[in-house]
Design a protein around this nucleic acid. Structure first.
Length: 731
RNA sequence: GCGCCCGUAGCUCAGCUGGAUAGAGCGACUGACUACGAAUCAGUAGGCCGGGAGUUCGAAUCUCUCCGGGCGCACCA
């Protein structure tokens, strides 16, 4: 609603500037004034034009205002301050717009996009850092889809790296396990899992977490000779895995696949699903790099270095500035192919991204891998199924990768551009975010040894290698336990201050309690990860993450539950109320437009009768009284009176959704939506305390208040669902 | 040494492309539950927006510089 009106106003101002001053200004900056006293939309355009036109801003503003005339949806314009133009909305009209829930303007060309996120090395359990990645990525996917974009979700699996080799070394050489032993361990974990045993017994990824940390330590814990032998073992294992077709690579595949399944299960708890899992092993075996190498050589992006420190390597110039007159080797260049003719990580990444944009001329094989209730997730394979969906060849890609990787990401973009794929380079977004670290207090709480130096820091980086961090499933389990305690407390009538009314705590089944607790826990977790903007480091602390008050997911969910309770108690539904309110205000709007008051009383229409019988003892009088005023007039009065400013403010906030969505996508920043949802819930709670809806005697006003609640509900549920947070029926 | 990010209330953070009186949450203190459930609401206190200079009618926001903190910059993967 607000977005639409802003666009309308912007276009009109644009036209005025054109005809009046012959100025072609594309983007009229429009903003939200700090206070409703200044109207709903404002523009400082007159300030910008002051110098160009050599006139005082105030005079320009006045000229524009007079030239604007009347615009549909606006009540008027005025000049304020030193030259602001403030626009006041036609509040009754705006409310009607908000009720109709306008379709989203699909302003964006319908881009076919790939969002890649999660991408956890399949050698250990997921930790809180991975949660931030996956939640950010998943939420962004939801935002893009809401805006009408077709999105494939990919989760890149580096199953041939040293990290996997380390766990293989651990199993084979530290634990002396064989292939069949490992199969047995995995089977055992799955059995324990089915029985609902504790995480330590039932999670293969937890087993690997510890083993990986032990192996990492083992490499440096022996004598110098021993350590060297161990390192050799490590690289022999790595190379065997990369080659494939041997028992070591078979073990690696077994481990990484089992851990990957655990990751998908963990993420599924948060409502996160994937479409395709491309694996590094296929990028290797299907010779993606060889195809890319040819293209890179032909385009001249890579060149062979004959001297200097990178002698014998294929390298890529790093920076954009090419100092031509500077002779000699470019030691600063990025090595893509080593002197032993193996390819670096960035090289493989370039090949992979050429595939993403459909520029490689090769494709993966595809096999189904993981079944979600509503769709299948596919995985790359050397020899896939003949029938499979098509991935890749996207117009835009978003890589959710932490900010430490911005250098290699920039390298890939630079290579694309150098190869002449400028459009692709422009649509390549490194969706970067800062890490999740632990506060020293949290680290101590978890029982880790914290050094003196770390104690003095604000936060300590998590490390999978050291086994230092909070595992994702542990956190989710703790959250569910905490929310479950709250749900039970509200259930058994142990009140947090208030008497629990009979009937309020109607006995809920075990399954129901569990479901509610889970919804709240996930809501708390997702909101916690989304409320910070991307480039702020989250210093993780259980106290903050386990909080359900204030700016949290449960706060917003609670507002939803409150609204639902109102409708439940009132014996009506949001849909019915909105339908009634819409027909009422539409009819009234028409009559008001004709300057005539009709005797039409929409309250008596069949739609609205349900909520009538409980309240309104004096329907006849009430109708008589409001007849003189007519719903439109009273609506306008309610929306503009001082003591109802909170109601109008709530409607206005509710109408900002598409504007916020636009901003989120433009800035790749889901936190804006999180903020919006919280503010909306906050305004609703304020409204809730101030106006008691069900005891309102004026039936027209009661309908109006119910409609306000209904729109708030609709917008809250919509915003929450885009944040991946469910709206519980009860709490 | 080079590059990127951060520095805003006691703490954790918002502040969109420069704009009107710098906002939330937590914590502290005061109040409000026999109402549609208080996982809530109202109120009070708390700020040279790291320092300095510049651009501008106008700077938390842009530029430069200094200070403080974090992360990158390998033929590792």
């Amino acid at each position: 609603m607000v977005l639409e009106l802003q666009q309308r106003l912007g276009a009109r101002i644009c036209a005025v500037l054109k005809e009046k001053y012959d100025l072609a200004i594309e983007n009229i900056s429009l903003e939200t004034p700090p206070d409703l006293r200044f109207g709903e939309i404002a523009t400082p355009i007159a300030f910008e034009l002051a110098r160009k036109l050599r006139k005082a801003p105030k005079i320009i503003a006045q000229e524009i205002v007079t030239a604007l005339g009347a615009i549909d949806g606006f009540a008027g314009f005025e000049v304020a301050g030193a030259g602001y133009i403030n626009a006041r909305l036609d509040r009754a009209a705006a409310v009607q717009m908000a009720v109709s829930d306008e379709a989203l303007p699909s302003s964006k060309e319908l881009l076919n996009a790939i969002v890649e996120h999660t991408s956890i090395n399949p050698n250990k359990a997921a930790h809180i850092g991975h949660l931030r990645n996956a939640i950010l990525g998943d939420t962004f996917v939801r935002l893009l889809r809401a805006a009408g974009c077709k999105v494939d979700v990919q989760n890149y699996i580096d199953n041939t790296g040293v990290q996997v080799a380390d766990v293989v070394v651990g199993f084979l050489h530290l634990e002396g396990k064989s292939l069949t032993d490992i199969q047995e361990i995995i089977r055992n974990c799955e059995m324990h899992r089915a029985l609902g045993s504790a995480r330590q017994q039932s999670s293969f990824d937890y087993y690997c977490w510890d083993l990986y940390a032990r192996t990492s330590q083992w490499y440096t814990s022996g004598t110098t000779e021993e350590n060297e032998a161990r390192k050799r073992l490590r690289y022999d294992t790595l190379h065997a895995i990369e080659r494939g077709g041997n028992e070591t690579s078979e073990i690696a595949e077994l481990i990484s696949t089992a851990v990957l399944k655990r990751h998908l299960e963990t993420m599924q708890r948060l409502g996160i699903e994937y479409d395709f899992l491309p694996r590094e092993s296929e990028i290797l075996h299907l010779k993606f790099w060889e195809a890319a190498f040819e293209q890179l050589k032909q385009s001249g992006v890579l060149y062979f270095e004959n001297e200097g420190k990178n002698q014998g390597c294929w390298v890529m110039s790093r920076a954009t500035e090419r100092v031509q007159d500077q002779a000699g080797p470019e030691d600063d260049a990025k090595v893509i192919v080593r002197s032993n003719s193996t390819v670096t990580y960035v090289g493989k990444d370039i090949a992979y991204h050429l595939w993403k944009f459909g520029l490689l001329g090769r494709d993966f094989g595809y096999k189904p891998f993981f079944a979600y209730p509503n769709h299948e997730c596919w995985i790359s394979a050397e020899h896939g199924e003949t029938q499979h969906p098509h991935f890749g060849a996207a117009r835009a890609i978003y890589n959710v990768i932490d900010s430490r990787q911005s250098d290699p990401q920039a390298n890939v973009i630079q290579a694309l551009r150098g190869m002449g794929h400028a459009a692709e380079a422009d649509h390549y977004t490194h969706f970067s975010y800062e890490m999740v670290a632990l506060t020293p207090r949290c680290a101590i709480e978890l029982g880790y040894d914290v050094s003196e130096e770390d104690l003095s820091r604000a936060y300590i980086e998590v490390s999978g290698r050291k086994g230092f961090g909070v595992k994702a499933d542990d956190l989710i389990d703790r959250l569910i336990a905490a929310t479950r305690a709250e749900v039970d407390a509200r259930q058994t009538g142990v009140p947090s201050g208030r008497f629990v009314l009979a009937g309020v705590g109607t006995a809920r089944s075990e399954a129901e309690r569990h479901r509610i607790a889970t919804q709240i826990a996930i809501g708390a977790l997702r909101y916690f990860m989304l409320k910070y903007t991307r480039n702020s480091v989250i210093a993780f602390d259980f106290k903050d993450a386990l909080s359900f008050e204030g700016e949290t997911g449960p706060y917003i969910q609670y507002a939803v539950v409150r609204i639902r309770n109102i409708f439940r108690k009132g014996g009506t539904t949001p849909e019915a109320v909105l339908a009634e309110f819409a027909s009422q205000s539409a009819a009234a709007g028409k009559s008001a437009g004709q300057q005539k008051v009709t005797s039409n009383t929409p309250q008596n229409s069949d739609e609205g009768t349900k909520c009538q019988d409980t309240a309104s003892v004096v329907p006849q009088e009430a109708q008589k009284n409001t007849e003189a005023l007519a719903p439109a007039a009273s609506l306008t009065a309610w929306l503009s009176s001082e003591e109802n400013e909170d109601i109008w403010s709530l409607w206005l906030r509710a109408g900002r959704f598409s504007l916020v969505l636009d901003q989120c996508i433009a800035a790749s920043e889901p936190a804006y939506l999180a903020k919006h949802a919280f503010q909306l819930a906050q305004e609703f709670n304020n409204f809730y305390h101030k106006h008691h809806i069900l005891t309102e005697e004026d039936v027209n006003r009661k309908t109006f208040l119910l409609a306000t609640a209904a729109v708030a509900l609709r917008e809250l549920v919509k915003a929450l669902s885009l944040l991946g947070i469910e709206s519980p029926e009860a709490m």
